[in-house]
Structure formats: structure tokens, C-alpha cells
Write a protein that binds this DNA or RNA. Structure first.
Lengths: 187, 187
DNA sequence: TAAAACAAGTACGTCAGCGTATGGATATTG
DNA sequence: CAATATCCATACGCTGACGTACTTGTTTTA
């Protein structure tokens, strides 16, 4: 019964987070100011104090996602050490476990019809791929082979998110750890 | 200047196809009757003659997609013969080449927030996977390994569609043919 | 504690999109 | 060629969503 936040007054971030959940649940088109207002139990008077208009919210939304995802990748880079092959598995495990990555499909769907969102998605993709490629390099593959394997692995993880969303993380994790070995296996 | 069709009068299918293009270009939320009417250069009077309401169009849309995709898979099954390993590559090539599969991401994005669409997507996924699994079985892998490889391959192809859409088919084809070998390589 | 800054409420105008009703136009068929 | 079935246009009412203008309430801070 007791709300987590005191929720006396809202901040810009309150709206962004609410928008995020709505994006995840219903898609970007349903991220509408009056709808969010209802969810947050205020009127749009609040919204238009924090944002110039709807497009400003959307911009803030994609930038927020970009920052979070960038943090995630960099965090990861510092988190795991030791055996490169094990680091690859750890990284995948981390990706699947991380709450934040669940927003990926929704953001991608959005980016598919919005150039601005698309730019950020491409940025994040690039960052992630760079990171994965380095992992394979560390594991002993030459540059070309590293890129091929990194891409395959990355695309696989993406695709996996589109088909198996009803399955539990535990199941997904077990499978991914197994499959990663195929990607790691020497050519 | 000369229209392909005489376009004197429209049919149900005219609307469905137009809806499909719009779904692809702008997402399901933009599939609106007045918008389609404008595209087809008629008024909604036409639409409401062919369809009871918007939801009937959407239903027809996803059913149409289902039929087309089912046809595509079955066609493929009959098209390629001989060396199972080569058939795997041929199948992938076929998937990427086929005009129809380009609608996949848009349909999936839709399915993500629409249970009815979701049901059909799952149906198509199942059909495709069954087909791919059989391919790997024919190539000599045991049932369990066949499923693992088929899924990996399928997810990879899906994921690939989400990242490299700006690249030409030719480029995608060359890469896929190369990468398929990793999936085919014996464990 | 009064003033300033901050946050939210209220009321309104506008527009796009859905669906209905009804009449007009064009094929098709007897 | 007249009658019927098919297809489309026009006009309307309704709703939800955007954004604006203005007011009201609540914290901070001087």
C-alpha cells in the first residue's frame, strides 16, 4: 500500500522513467502526455512544466537510454577479469541478466521509424560490438575473425530477445552459456 | 505515369497490401484508415465497405502475413535438394533474398504489443524452426544438437535483420554464407 | 514570514482519427 | 436496357490527444 517514493512532487526523471515503462509495455506511440499523467496521478499541467512538449520528452528518453546502456557496457568492461573465454560467457550472462537490456526491443522498434532514436541505437550497437570484438581478440582470434564472431554472437543475443521473451531468465542463461561455446570454439 | 493496375476500383486485398507497406514503413500505429485512403486516393467510404472496422483490417493483415510466410517456408522445402549442408546455406540465402521477410521486424514490433499478432508470429517461428531443425538433422546432427544449432542460426538471422538493415542484400548475403559455416561445422 | 521559485490544476481551442448514415456512381447480369 | 449488386463520396458526431493561458498551491530562501 505504501508508495515507494513519497511522490509529493514529481521531477523530470519521474516522467522519463514512467515514459520508459510505457515504452516497454505499449510501444512509443502510447507514450502520450495525458496517459503518463494519469499513470502518475497528476495532470498535464505538471508535464508542461518539466517539458516543452512531447518531442522533448522523447528526446530525453532516448538520451537517457543511451547513457544507461553506455554505463552498462563500461561497467561490464571493468567487472570481469581473467580468462578471456570465460569473460565472454560472463558478458553474455551479464547482458541477459541485466534488467536494463529488457528495453532493447522496444527501443529498437521505436528506432525503426524514428531517425533520432535510430542514431542512438546505432551508437550503442557500435559500442557493444567494439567491446565484444575486443573480447574475442583477447581470446586469441585475429581481427577479422574477431569481428565476425562478435557480430554473430551479438546478433544472436538480439534475435534471442525477440523470440523467447516468455521464457525465464534462468532458462535463457543456461542455454546461452552452452551456446556461447560454439562461438568460442576455435575455427 | 501509367499505374500498374487500372485502379478503377479497389478490392479487400488492395487495402491489405497498402496496410502492409504502411506497417513496414511507419509501424502498426500508423496503419489508419484515413491515411490508407489518402494513399489509395479514395475516401474511407471505400474502406468501410470492404471492412467492418479497423480491427478487422488488422486481423486480415496478420492472417495474410501468416499465409505468405507459411507458403514461403513450404516453397523452400520443395525448392532445394541434394547435399544437406548446401541446403542450409541455400535456405539462408533464400530467407535474406526473399522480399517477404523484410516485413519481419515490423510484424514483430507489432506482435510485441498485440496478443493476436503475437500468436501468429509464434506460429511462424515454430514452423521455421521445425524446418531448420530438420535441415540440421539431415546434415547429420543428433536431435538435441540440431535444435540448438537451428535456434542459434534462426536467432542470428533475426538479430541480423535488426542491425544491418541499411546494408545491401548483396553484402548481407556474402556474410551470411560465410558465417553459416560456423553453424554447420561439426562439434 | 514574505517573496520568489517551483510544481501542479483548470479550462479552453484545435485537430486527427474512428465510425455512421446516406446518397451517388459504376459495373454486372437478367 | 433496366435492375441489382457493387463500390465510393460526402457530411456528420464523437473522442482522445496536443498545446496554451492562466490560476492555484507548495516549498525554499532571503
Amino acid at each position: 500500500m505504501s508508495e515507494k517514493q513519497k511522490t509529493k512532487r514529481l521531477t523530470r526523471l519521474s516522467w522519463i522513467k514512467c515514459a520508459f515503462d510505457t515504452l516497454y509495455e505499449d510501444g512509443i506511440e502510447q507514450v502520450r502526455v495525458e496517459r503518463l499523467a494519469k499513470k502518475l496521478k497528476v495532470t498535464k499541467g505538471s508535464f508542461y512544466w518539466h517539458f516543452k512538449d512531447r518531442s522533448e520528452l522523447l528526446e530525453a528518453l532516448i538520451e537517457y537510454w543511451n547513457e544507461e546502456m553506455t554505463k552498462t557496457v563500461l561497467q561490464n568492461a571493468e567487472m570481469f577479469h581473467g580468462d578471456p573465454q570465460k569473460r565472454i560467457v560472463s558478458t553474455l550472462t551479464y547482458i541477459v541478466s541485466n534488467e536494463r537490456t529488457k528495453y532493447d526491443p522496444a527501443v529498437r522498434a521505436w528506432a525503426n521509424h524514428d531517425p533520432k532514436a535510430k542514431k542512438y541505437v546505432e551508437k550503442v550497437d557500435k559500442l557493444r560490438l567494439t567491446f565484444l570484438i575486443a573480447l574475442f581478440s583477447d581470446a586469441g582470434f585475429d581481427p577479422e575473425e574477431s569481428e565476425i564472431r562478435a557480430r554473430m554472437l551479438y546478433y544472436y543475443v538480439l534475435g534471442e530477445a525477440y523470440v523467447t521473451r516468455k521464457e525465464s531468465r534462468a532458462v535463457r542463461l543456461r542455454r546461452i552459456e552452452n551456446k556461447a561455446r560454439i562461438f568460442i570454439a576455435p575455427s
